[in-house]
């Protein structure tokens, strides 16, 4: 539904309409600064706690800034857990998800937007219809399906749900509909096949839509908890999210270690958000996804 709201790649927060800055903007700062600090506090605590020596956490009154900075938490994290393996698993899952999503959804989006074939409209209608189906309806049968396929306790169980999505197909179709059809017609008249025209002419033009789709898939697959949770029990096959969630149950007392794990799991996305904020916002407006 969010899908219908805006152009997939419209610039979102390019900046408010220009207005002269008046002295009154001081009030604006007085309102905004505390709110922004409040939003930043949990992450700041996460970083600080990951660097806090163990003794500090049980002192009273509790301190916000650690008395000294230590990497103990990280040292223990890397020694006592498979965090590197989990990181590798998550990177692999997200990479497969993104590559597969981009290829399958842009092919299908192009087919539904530009080609004429029997069953096209019915097929597209069914795909859009699946957007209404909530995830929890699918948990039980998907679990059974995965166990019949023999992929329980393998990373495939975390990847398969992210290979393609109705949202991705819809997004790419909308984008391809907005391109002038003359582009690939010229290429085909010049002797390209459909696939060559798609690959050489159309896909390079679709970069903004592909960026939106890639971020959608990255956020969703990196932060996914439900599918790994129901399908993976073997700690060797954990994703980062599953790993740190399990940690939390087991080591509630060792906060610097827990927060170090949290930093390792979250920092890549934070860094990426800081670099590509504009694309993230475009993705957000278009999808409303939140893991």
């Amino acid at each position: 539904m969010a899908l219908l709201l805006r152009d997939p790649v419209a610039p979102v927060v390019d900046g408010p309409p220009a207005r002269r800055t008046r002295p009154r903007s001081l009030w604006w700062h007085l309102l905004l600064a505390p709110v922004a600090l409040l939003f930043a506090t949990p992450f700041v605590q996460m970083f600080l706690t990951s660097l806090t020596p163990k003794e500090d956490i049980n002192t009273f009154p509790p301190r916000f800034f650690p008395s000294s900075v230590t990497l103990e938490g990280y040292a223990k994290l890397f020694e006592q857990s498979d965090i590197l393996r989990w990181m590798g698993n998550t990177v692999l899952v997200s990479a497969v998800a993104i590559v597969s999503h981009l290829i399958l959804c842009s092919l299908a989006g192009y087919g539904f937007a530009r080609l004429t074939f029997k069953g096209r409209d019915v097929g597209f209608f069914m795909i859009v219809g699946t957007i209404m189906i909530p995830t929890q309806l699918l948990m039980v049968p998907t679990y059974i399906l995965f166990s019949r396929l023999g992929i329980i306790d393998t990373l495939a169980a975390a990847m398969v749900p992210w290979l393609a999505s109705a949202f991705g197909i819809f997004l790419m179709r909308q984008f391809f509909l907005s391109l002038p059809p003359e582009l690939e017609e010229a290429a085909i008249v010049d002797g390209c096949t459909r696939l060559q025209a798609f690959w050489r002419i159309i896909l390079p033009l679709a970069r903004p839509a592909l960026a939106t789709l890639a971020i959608f898939t990255l956020l969703g697959s990196w932060n996914d908890l439900v599918w790994p949770l129901i399908a993976i029990n073997d700690p060797q096959q954990f994703t980062l999210q599953l790993g740190i969630t399990n940690f939390q149950g087991a080591r509630r007392t060792d906060w610097s270690l827990l927060m170090a794990g949290n930093v390792v799991a979250t920092l890549p996305l934070i860094a990426f958000f800081l670099v590509a904020q504009r694309q993230f916002l475009a993705t957000m407006t278009f999808s409303g996804i939140k893991g």
């Binding site: 908890l225 799991a265 893991g291």
Partner: peptide
Amino acid sequence: FLPFVASAAATGIL
């Protein structure tokens, strides 16, 4: 906007 990238797992621990 930054908290949007925080996963449920990370938010839970925080």
